[in-house]
């Protein structure tokens, strides 16, 4: 997986249905300086690890099942 760059996120903003985030906010996702909850690159790397784990046929969680 290649490192995320600002151009990709600007493409998401401009070409997919998205709120018009400012360039500075897009830059923050690529190179966090504000103390955002987590760096996006770091999150993507962890998501890539999750993607490789086989969950079989486990469905998405719904509400807590009834008693």
């Amino acid at each position: 997986m290649q490192k995320l760059d600002k151009k990709t996120l600007i493409g998401i903003r401009d070409q997919l249905a998205s709120y018009a985030w400012e360039d500075a906010e897009i830059a923050e996702l690529v190179d966090p300086k504000l103390g955002i909850i987590t760096g996006f690159q770091e999150l993507l790397e962890q998501l890539e690890c999750l993607r490789k784990i086989d969950l079989g046929s486990t469905p998405p969680a719904g509400d807590i099942p009834a008693k």
Binding site: W21, L29, L47
Partner: peptide, 20 residues
Amino acid sequence: RAGLALGQCLLAEQYIRAKR
């Protein structure tokens, strides 16, 4: 706002996988 922007850039499949 930065956190919300992050939410914008996650893929639907990643959200569903997290729920799984």
